[in-house]
Design a protein around this nucleic acid. Sequence first.
DNA 1: GGCATTTCAAGAGCAGTGCTCACATTTGTC
DNA 2: GACAAATGTGAGCACTGCTCTTGAAATGCC
Lengths: 223, 223
Amino acid sequence: MSNGLTPRQQARAENLARIKDLALAQLASGGAAELSLRAIARELNIVSSAIYRYYPGRDELITDLVIDAYDDLAEHLLAALETRRGPRRHWIDACLAMREWAIDQPHRFALIYGSAIPGYFAPEETIESAARVPACFFAAAPDAQAPAQSHPIGRELRRQLGVTAAAFDSDADAATVLAQVTAFAQIVGMLTLELNGHFVGGFEPADDLYAAVIEREADALGL
Amino acid sequence: MSNGLTPRQQARAENLARIKDLALAQLASGGAAELSLRAIARELNIVSSAIYRYYPGRDELITDLVIDAYDDLAEHLLAALETRRGPRRHWIDACLAMREWAIDQPHRFALIYGSAIPGYFAPEETIESAARVPACFFAAAPDAQAPAQSHPIGRELRRQLGVTAAAFDSDADAATVLAQVTAFAQIVGMLTLELNGHFVGGFEPADDLYAAVIEREADALGL
DNA sequence: GGCATTTCAAGAGCAGTGCTCACATTTGTC
DNA sequence: GACAAATGTGAGCACTGCTCTTGAAATGCC
């Protein structure tokens, strides 16, 4: 082959990819409960125990899916930031892109922002990818400047906000970082409620509600 | 017995209660994955199939747990509203009580606000209890009056907000209802992130962050 | 090319799950 | 006491994650 892989290495890579694809399909079709290693093996025309040559266990597969989901979401957000339409619109686009992604793939959103897999706790190796998502929002509003707040920010919180700003390469002041974190939590909360059906009967569709909330947060960010 | 129940009816009621208790204990100890009807039956010194005389299936048990969780949370919120310390403090107390409850019983929070049980979708019968929670927040700030907003509220959103206000017996204007809904989503988002470990490394403990966010929302509610 | 080594797959098996069903036992009521 | 309803029993089905031993194949080295 043109690449320097032996047939065996290539087959292994292909199988790993197919396993992840099938896992993703299962996740999409029936939720995380349907995620079955045996079922994947079946569709792969492979005996159930053979799948453990590729993944040591279910949790490792899930971890891979989690990391992929974070990365894919971050990529989707970055893609939405390609079109520059002014700082405020820029940040709003990121918010809309996040909802777009979440509604398009609710199972993956649940995988990373819901406690979707009971008994599974995300290992350390996921946090790097996890951080990519809020990083997009920081990047989307580099010039944010929160308006003066009525309530002072205490010392400990100020320290935490400083650490956060540093982690995201932001030189924003404490109040602005607070507004960023708040906005992110707001978005996650809105999507959590929407995707879990808590808006059923009240806000359906929730497009306008989401838009209004985003505008409000943009104000709070001084955009 | 002093009550008009036959021994059999009484035994049944006791068993139902014990089943729910054991289920809750399992949920607390090992997450929803560990929720096993067989394990409950075992601890109940009953053969596994006998448990189906009490619950037709796993989902029905979960539904009961979900309803109980909503009700218990709402009760906890109402209890926090006993002490009247001014309208603003009143509403803030509700927010703090919600976090208190969530941190104390993260599994139950995940049960109702996370998509904790894969393959399980909450049936209609849960929405009545579900509504009790936001209702507490509406009740906690009856005199809320959102300050003037920079962005107008469109017709459709205004309609939805009206429906929501009616559902919660509130006569607040659209902007205020929007602020209420926003604040609730904010709280859910904050707790979702905190309980799922998304604040690890940045905001730990998140007490100050939460407090700051609440103050901000209280402002937005004109409290 | 021949051969040892590594890699992979097969298949049986263990312990667990939700759930069903035919059957036995207990309980409440007439 | 007789009969029907409610409850418990135990076997069984189909499924899960996962382990282990055995056999086959591809790989790398001489």
